[in-house]
Structure formats: C-alpha cells, structure tokens
Simulated assay, not measured.
Amino acid sequence: MLKWFKKKKEQALEKKPSRLSRLKDKLLKTRQNFSERINHLFLGKKEIDEHILEELEEILIMADLGVEATQKLIQNLTQKTSQKEINSIDQLKQDLKQEILNFLQIEAPPLDIEKAKPFVIMLVGVNGVGKTTAIAKLAKYYKDQGKRSLLIAADTFRAAAIEQLEIWAERVGAEIYKQQPGADPAAVVFDGLQVAKKQEIDIVFVDTAGRLHTKINLMEELKKIKKVIEKSIPLAPHEIWLVLDATTGQNVISQVKMFHEALGVTGLILTKLDGTAKGGIVVSTCYTFKIPLRFIGIGEHLPDLHPFDAQEFVEALL
C-alpha cells in the first residue's frame, strides 16, 4: 500500500506542469500574435533582407511592443546585420530574443522586504485593473513565505470595496484595518499604520481607490496619503506599485506617465496577461519608463500572481 501511494505521488508530480510551461499556456494569445507570426515570416528564409526587417517591425508593433521600443530594436538588429554580426536567420532570432530581454532587465535594487518592519507598499491604479485582487494575491504570496500582512482599506468611496477587501483578507489569512465608508482615506491610513506598528506586522498593503489618472483632485489625494505614510514611518512608503491591466494595451503608457509624475512609482504589476494578445506591452512599458515590473497576473486564482522573471517571460513569449 505504501508503494502504491508513493507511485501515485510521483505520477502526480510528473503530471504537474512546470512554471515555464504554465506561463507559455497563459501567454498563448500573445504568442500567437507574436512568436507564431515571426516564425511564419522566417519560414524557409535563408538570407536577411530589408523586406524581412520591415515585416518584423510591423509584427512587433502589432504585438504592442510600441513604436519607440520597436524602432530601437529594429535599429539595433539592422546595425548588427550591416556589420555582419548577424549572418543568418537563426542568428537574427537569437538576437531578437536577446534585444527583448535587454529591454526587460531593468537595473533596480532588489526588493528587500526585510529592511523595514512594517514594510509599507502603497498600491495605486485606475478603476477595474484588478488592484484589490492583486493585493490579496500579494498577501497570500508573502504569507507562504512566513510574513504577516495587514491590508489597509483606504478606498473609502465605495462600501463594496471595503467589503471586497475584507472577504479577501479572511480568505488569504491576512489582517485588515478598515473604517466606515466615506472616512478620510489619509486618516484611515494613518490609524492603520499605528495598528501595524503595535502588532509588529511584516508587510502593510495600502489599498487606494481606483481613479482616472487624468483627475487632478484624486491624484492630489494620493499625494496626501503618501505624505501621511512618510510622516508615520521613516522612509515609507518603501514601495509604490502601479497596477495595470494588460488588455488595455498602449493605454497603460499614459497611466504610468501620470502616476509616476505624481508619486514616483517604484514598481509595476501587470494583470490579465492570460486574457490578451497584447502581452508585448510588457516590453514597451519597461523600455519607456525603466521601472521594474515586479509581478505579473496570469489568471484568476490566488497563485496566479507571479514575481516577474524577464528570462522566463522571453522564453515563454518566443
């Protein structure tokens, strides 16, 4: 009987897909829009000519890599081709892969949540990007690493937002600090941080109300929340993460620009990559702003928010 259970366990482990193969599955729509079109372009070709590079440029733009990033990438490949550094289609494919990887590998200090207690992460974003769900998934991710989290419900405009965060907190085993709907968000954050310090919480996630990045008064409120955090805990917020919806494609560029100018965004979370053919926006965003992509969302389940790995992403994409 013991041998039977052991065999069953081994079979289950063998059937469990690797993280890379699962990422490939989740990026299917983007890969069809990107990798498969590139393979079709290169099929049967032996020499690199101007026509191939022009078509490659069109494919990259259609996959939402953005005009600026695409032009730079094609410029680099053209230069290498003219200097005979690239002599074959296989070499072109490898260099394309490396160029994309270079755009994604942002020079930034590693995320060190051990440097402060509590470590405060403020999350911002427009309506509907999946910010509250992302917070729950982050709390679950860090709980699995033995960290206690406190979720501060600073989206006080909607009673449903507080209720949603409360349900998620209970589900993932995190603490929550909330007040009545309509309370001043900055005051809620201040009080929540005092609780976090008293309870010796490891990580605090501040859930702010979704807002259009073009609404100046709402952006000013975020600045106020940031100032309250700064006064409450030295060097906090330690991170300000902007949550983006990958399905909106190039629209995320203007969102990053406005939020970054207002708050100094330190990291990005890109959700819903499994539901779009526009996954190339990852490349465009990293290239344009040089802000590290910290996590990507590839599904609705709690484990479907992963730390971003540039090498793994490129492997799955190409």
Rank of each mutant, 00 (worst) to 15 (best):
M1T: 14
L2E: 15
W4P: 13
K9M: 13
K9G: 10
Q11P: 08
L13W: 10
E14I: 13
R19Y: 14
L20H: 06
R22A: 13
L28C: 15
K29C: 10
N33T: 02
N39W: 11
L41Q: 02
L43V: 09
G44W: 03
K46L: 15
E50Y: 08
L53K: 00
E54C: 00
T70V: 00
K80M: 15
K80P: 06
K80A: 11
K84I: 06
N87I: 13
N87V: 13
I89Y: 00
Q91W: 03
L92H: 03
K93F: 00
Q94A: 07
D95V: 11
K97C: 00
Q98K: 12
Q98V: 04
E99K: 09
E99Q: 13
I100W: 04
Q105F: 05
Q105I: 11
A108S: 12
P109I: 05
P110F: 12
I113K: 10
E114L: 09
M122W: 07
L123T: 12
V126C: 09
G128F: 07
V129E: 06
G130M: 04
K131C: 02
T132E: 00
T132I: 02
T133D: 03
T133A: 04
A139S: 03
Y142C: 00
D144P: 08
L150R: 04
I152T: 08
T156G: 11
F157I: 12
F157M: 12
F157R: 12
R158V: 11
A161V: 06
E166Q: 13
A169P: 06
R171H: 12
A174N: 04
E175R: 14
P181S: 11
V189P: 12
K198L: 14
Q199S: 15
I201P: 07
I201C: 08
I203P: 02
V204P: 02
F205R: 00
V206L: 05
V206I: 13
D207S: 02
T208W: 07
G210L: 07
K215N: 15
N217C: 06
E220K: 14
E221T: 10
L222N: 11
K224V: 11
K226D: 11
K231R: 14
A236D: 02
P237C: 06
E239V: 03
E239N: 01
T247R: 15
T248C: 08
G249S: 04
Q250N: 00
I253F: 04
K257P: 05
M258L: 15
M258T: 15
E261D: 13
E261A: 14
E261F: 09
D274T: 05
D274N: 06
A277E: 00
A277Y: 01
S284H: 05
S284K: 04
T285A: 04
K290N: 10
L293Y: 05
G297H: 09
G299I: 03
H301T: 15
D304M: 01
L305I: 01
H306A: 10
P307T: 03
D309P: 02
D309C: 09
E312N: 09
F313C: 05
V314F: 01
V314T: 02
E315D: 09
E315N: 07
E315V: 03
